[in-house]
Nucleic acid binder design. Structure first.
Length: 846
DNA sequence: GTACGCTTATTTTTT
DNA sequence: ATAAGCGTAC
């Protein structure tokens, strides 16, 4: 099916025989006397290479990176500096100059999207079969590795991959089995605990519990491992850890790969966690000894995943441990206009922990950043809607407009504004295709066919659709399984009576399915299982099952597409196919090679397309919305926007507590990560950036009164253009929360401060200068909470008024009735006054 | 086995 | 506000 790729014309294989030196996984590079990469070990670079059309148009720094001599390299690549181009051109250049064959390349990314893009760009650059290369995500490559070395790994050839929710349910089962109190040993937290331990490279034996909870979690970790091992399943972190351990503990395997890979390239290096760094070191071996060059590309300023274990420190460690001769900085930005870049630079300069980098652009200053203050989240959305319509009128496509926010909850009000106005939009994030319940159910049947020991899948569908197997039956079954140390599927005969009969009927169904799909195409397999399992019928009978039925049909389509477009088994390929069949096997000691290489010796592909598809489903969650090509506004969190760019960017909700998020504000590290997040957000914009914040916002069913984000104050004045008056008083101070707390007798949301002030001595709001006309723009819709409040004497809260002596003001509070009626009005620089309506001459404005 | 009502949590996310 | 998860009652 897949042709063995031809080696590049004129490309000569670099001799791979370089003795692998002593390897100490604990302290790989602790020997200070190790010689630097000797230049004599480096193949001469053909001088003609420097005039290669590949290199045309690269700036000096990019050129230096692309053509860096073999050996460790660290590229500090700023936002929009052509990072992906450098990475792919580097690979192409290495091959074109004959320094490496495709099989000698490993390129690692974090997301499938990035891997695909790299592959696509590379294919466009060079007529090379990228299949021989190891290009993929960390987890995808680990999967490939473990399929090839299943025996050494102690895994069944058809091992299944648990996603996060599978892992959680597996952990829950363990906690139940151990009879731990779920109140104390919280499943989710324990699941995190296990994942974190693995991400740090720690097995249960490496951990020392410090308290009762620690002891419980450790016990769960141990039992969870045993359970996974029994069932033949691995979670995401296990893919990495198991691969790393095999590399660490099996010299013959290690030496093989260290000889094989001449160049390892890593994208988004700042996002690597501890285990991934260890993993890379294991594949690279000691610098100067294995001759493997690691080319790491990253941007410490865009490190926004510390919360999930990313260690920016890996960059500095890499520079030191690999003895990177000099870090190459890509600081020329090809994306954003000057004001935008100035803002980004000024902001990020306030972080203390940086490797140091300043972006520059040849583009002019461009438009200033437009800043808007809204009265409410609703008003913010309305304003944005107006601006978006204007942008559309100016002839820009909507897909070039992005609305970014800190947290997903913020999208709702924006969505409703766009929806009601009939503006098409697309929200990124949320439930992915393969994560939908009905799809997971279908996959569970398929997984059981491949591996009946997969208890997680068994439990998911044993009674779905309902077939009379209730909690009691399952409990009996679990007891039997536990007693015999076997899987649930193996234990059905141990349950007596009707329950046992039902369970056996279920297993008979699985067996029947397995028989029935023999010889079918993948598409037909899925179609048959979806029908014969009763899933399709169940959803057809359900009131609101329409969408689920459609998703099941979509799953069939996805299978079809997987076979035709992707060529099934891409992820599952175990052999580098540019080697003559058997070469790799020959390169490995018999013990490793014989059984490990389970795939077809001719093609190197895993034989079962179903297994390949299941792996694909686990490792690639799939897009959530298929409406590609539609001209729609793009809505996403800032995290999701990393790596993307847009002509127009709306950055919303710039409020203390929201962004920076309140959970991150307490410590410096958290705050600096938030600031990097802000940096990422700003640098998404090419031409026009809008920043907005709101005085009030509905969050968790409560109105919160927010102060504008400190990040706004950290931007250079010159780069900003305020669409609303700067330092506008209304909502920028602490006054309103006090008032509301007083009025409602309830808490004050985010603005709870020590010792609420007495009502009438509320401090004047806002700081800074206020002009006479500061209040003219306060005509935005009144927040719901305010609109519902009482009126008096024809005035309402939020009403603009005029006073002969104090000028313009805004009504803050109304109290009393009739002759007693009084109002509190903010007169800007004249302060906040209480006035008796019967005395003061107040006239409403507008 | 399903329906209803109660409690709970609600930053960011890929694999 | 709101959704999801869980327990109890039919």
């Amino acid at each position: 099916m897949q042709q063995a790729p031809r080696r590049m014309k004129g490309a000569r294989r670099v001799p791979r025989e370089r003795a692998a030196g002593p390897y100490n996984p604990a302290m790989p590079f602790s020997d200070p006397s190790a010689p630097p990469v000797s230049s004599s070990a480096v193949p001469p670079v053909p001088s003609a290479a420097f005039s290669s059309p590949l290199l045309a148009g690269l700036n000096p720094e990019q050129l230096a990176a692309v053509t860096a001599p073999p050996g460790p390299a660290l590229i500090l690549a700023g936002a929009g500096s052509g990072k992906t181009r450098v990475l792919t051109t580097r690979i192409a250049w290495l091959m074109q100059t004959g320094q490496v064959s495709p099989a000698g390349i490993m390129a690692v990314t974090f997301t499938n999207k990035a891997a695909k893009e790299m592959q696509a760009r590379l294919s466009a650059m060079l007529p090379v079969n990228t299949r021989a290369m190891w290009i993929g995500t960390f987890h995808g490559l680990c999967n490939r590795f473990l399929r090839a070395h299943a025996k050494v790994a102690g895994l069944p050839a058809a091992f299944q991959i648990l996603d996060t929710s599978d892992q959680l349910s597996a952990v829950k089962r363990v906690i139940k089995a151990l009879k731990f109190d779920e109140e104390k040993c919280i499943p989710k937290a324990t699941s995190y605990f296990i994942a974190n331990a693995k991400d740090a490279g720690q097995r249960p034996k490496d951990l020392q519990p410090r308290d009762e909870l620690g002891r419980m979690q450790l016990a769960v970790y141990q039992a969870y491992e045993d359970q996974c091992q029994r069932e033949g399943v691995v979670d995401f972190a296990e893919l990495m850890l198991r691969t790393y351990e095999i590399m660490r503990d099996h010299p013959e395997v290690r030496e093989h790969y260290q000889r094989r890979f001449k160049h390892i390239l890593v994208d988004e290096f700042q996002d690597t966690n501890r285990l991934q760094y260890l993993w890379l070191k294991a594949f690279a071996g000691s610098p100067g000894v294995t001759g493997t060059s690691v080319f790491a590309v990253g941007d410490d300023d865009q490190s926004i995943y510390a919360f999930r274990g990313a260690q920016v420190g890996n960059m500095a460690d890499f520079e030191r441990e690999f003895r990177v001769p000099h870090v190459i900085k890509l600081e020329q930005n090809y994306r954003s206009h000057g004001h935008i870049l100035d803002a980004a630079n000024t902001l990020i300069a306030q972080n203390s922990k940086r490797l140091g980098k300043n972006l520059r652009t040849d583009a002019g200053l461009g438009e200033p950043i437009r800043v808007h203050e809204a009265a409410s989240d609703f008003a913010e959305a309305q304003w944005m809607l107006d601006e978006i319509r204007q942008v559309k009128r100016e002839g820009h496509p909507l897909y070039e407009v992005a609305v970014l926010y800190r947290s997903n909850a913020q999208s709702r009000v924006i969505e409703s504004a766009l929806f009601n106005a009939g503006v098409p939009y697309k929200v990124y994030g949320g439930l992915r295709f393969f994560e939908r319940a009905e799809v997971k159910h279908a996959l569970a049947y398929l997984r059981l066919i491949e591996n009946p020991s997969d208890d997680t899948s068994f439990l998911r569908v044993v009674n779905f659709p309902a077939r009379g197997i209730g909690a009691r039956s399952i409990e009996q079954l679990q007891d039997a399984a536990r007693a015999s140390g076997r899987s649930l599927a193996q234990s059905v005969t141990a349950v007596a009576g009707k329950a046992g009969a039902n369970l056996q009927a279920f297993m008979a169904l699985i067996d029947t399915l397995r028989e029935a799909i023999r010889g079918l195409t993948l598409r037909d397999i899925i179609e048959h299982v979806v029908e014969a399992s009763g899933l399709a019928e169940h959803y057809r009978a359900e009131k609101d099952g329409q969408e689920r039925v459609e998703n099941l049909a979509e799953l069939v389509n996805a299978a079809e597409a997987f076979v035709t477009q992707e060529g099934f088994g891409k992820d599952a390929i175990a052999l580098p196919v540019d080697e003559p069949a058997g070469t790799i096997a020959a390169g490995l000691p018999a013990a490793v090679a014989a059984v490990e290489l389970l795939p077809d010796a001719e093609t190197g592909e895993i034989i079962s397309p179903l297994l390949a598809f299941l792996t694909h489903a686990s490792l690639e969650a799939g897009d959530n919305q298929a409406q590609a090509g539609q001209d729609a506004v793009q809505l996403m969190t800032i995290h999701a926007a990393k790596g993307l760019e847009f002509h127009h960017v709306f950055l919303t909700g710039l409020e203390e507590g929201l962004f920076p998020h309140e959970n991150s504000m307490s410590d410096t590290d958290g705050l600096e990560e938030e600031r990097r997040l802000m940096y990422v957000a700003i640098t998404r914009a090419r031409q026009r950036l809008y920043i907005s914040f709101s005085q009030t916002r509905m969050l968790h069913g409560q109105t919160r009164y927010n102060v504008k984000s400190r990040f706004l104050d950290e931007l250079p004045e010159d780069a900003l253009k305020w669409l609303t008056p700067r330092n506008q008083g209304f909502g920028s101070g602490f006054e309103k929360p006090y008032r509301d707390a007083w009025a409602s007798g309830k808490g004050m949301g985010s603005m709870v401060g020590a010792g609420a002030q007495p009502f009438r001595q509320a401090p004047a709001w806002g700081g800074g200068k206020r002009g006479e006309d500061n209040f003219k723009d306060l005509t935005a819709p009144i927040p719901k909470a305010m609109a519902e409040s009482k009126t008096a004497g024809g005035f309402r809260v939020g009403q603009s008024v005029f006073h002969n002596k104090f000028g313009e003001g805004v009504v803050l509070t109304l109290e009393g009735n009739g002759p007693d009626a009084r109002v509190q009005v903010n007169f800007g620089r004249h302060g906040t006054k209480w006035l008796m309506l019967s005395v003061a001459k107040l006239t409403p404005i507008e």
